[in-house]
């Protein structure tokens, strides 16, 4: 088992290197640091000195891949590629435009992100599976039909609408919870209720429908007929036989996103004013803070790969066929 995990982690390294190369190309080769400086300082009235200063402040004044002015290993280490890209493997993300250390920011913002993402994920999973089970149980009846119709309708509504509509209805009209904001500790609860509920609702259509499909597919299999032939009541067939098999694709599909929960949600966080990584990213995008965006791309891929590894491990846990072979 340990061997297996180590092997999976080794597989991840070339992928991370690939991600790193892609971001490096995107941020430093497609546009030169000069372009970025000009863009940030204003296109027209910008002196070469100002550009040099801007580059120097950020450490972009070195050659891209190979530094001819240095000796020995310095040829490779004193370059943008080494200092900006390779350094990310050591979680050294550098500083944001406002001078703060990005790694530190990320650490402090993870928790608020998790505070909405985790409840949305867990409660959502329970709610979706429950509804999907109900629809599968009442398959080919009106419950199922209208359930599917509702799912399709929910899927067709923009997530922005859920947020704006929810804020308007619950906070502005009914004054049940504050529109936005965040505080640490238990007080956070009143700020979190609305985003969590909205998060669950906005994902409901697609997930419920998908889970229903999984359940129905599982129910058409032969072993379900065997279970019925034993005289088991439909509820036991559904819960003991179908659910157990259907949980394999559902759980493993869910596990892959668990690490990504740390990244939070881009729009929900910015609408509700939650100081998480999502709103951090949005702010960085709108202020064109390249260093932060680059750090987030790397972090996101890293977490996704962790998710893939966790998925493989969870497969071995829930599926005896893989565990024992």
């Amino acid at each position: 088992m340990l061997n297996y995990i180590i092997r999976r982690i080794l597989y991840a390294i070339p992928i991370l290197v690939g991600v790193n190369l892609i971001t490096f190309t995107l941020f430093f080769v497609v546009n030169t640091p000069d372009d970025m400086a000009r863009m940030q300082l204003g296109i027209k009235r910008v002196t070469p000195e100002a550009i040099e200063k801007w580059k120097h402040e950020r450490g972009y004044d070195k050659p891209l891949m190979l530094n001819d002015s240095e000796e020995g290993s310095g040829k490779f280490t004193h370059t943008i590629f080494f200092e900006k890209s390779v350094a990310m493997f050591a979680f050294d993300f550098g500083r944001a435009d406002d001078g703060r250390d990005i790694a530190h920011e990320i650490k402090s913002r993870m928790l608020p992100s998790l505070a909405i993402a985790l409840p949305v994920f867990l409660l959502g999973l329970i709610v979706y599976i429950t509804f999907a089970l109900v629809m599968a149980f009442f398959r080919a009846t009106y419950v199922d039909f209208w359930g599917v119709v509702l799912c399709v309708a929910l899927m067709s509504i923009s997530s922005l609408f859920y947020i704006i509509g929810g804020q308007f209805l619950i906070s502005k009209l009914w004054h049940l919870v504050p529109i936005s904001g965040y505080s640490s500790g238990l007080d956070a609860g009143k700020f979190l209720v609305l985003p969590v509920i909205i998060g669950i609702i906005s994902g409901a259509g697609a997930s419920t429908r998908w889970y229903r499909t999984i359940f129905l597919e599982e129910m058409s299999k032969d072993y379900v007929r065997t279970a019925r032939a034993k005289g088991l009541p439909e509820s036991i067939v559904l819960f003991r036989h179908v659910l157990r098999n259907a949980m394999i694709p559902i759980l493993t599909g869910a596990v892959v996103v668990i690490p990504l929960l740390f990244l939070g949600s881009l729009i929900a966080e910015s609408f509700f004013g939650i100081p998480g990584l999502g709103s951090y990213t949005i702010d960085a995008i709108s202020s064109q803070d390249f260093a932060v965006v680059r750090a987030m791309v790397f972090l996101g891929s890293l977490l996704y790969i962790v998710g893939l590894i966790l998925t493989d491990i969870s497969y071995t846990l829930v599926d005896p066929r893989i565990r024992l072979e």
Binding site: D222, R225, T226, K230, G231, R244, N245
Partner: peptide, 24 residues
């Protein structure tokens, strides 16, 4: 009828591979 199935009348199927629950 459920009291009859598996008690008074049992059935075996063609595909043992598919007719058994893989995770039990």
């Amino acid at each position: 009828m459920r009291n009859v199935r598996g008690k008074r009348i049992s059935m075996i199927f063609q595909e043992p591979m598919l007719s058994l629950n893989p995770v039990m």
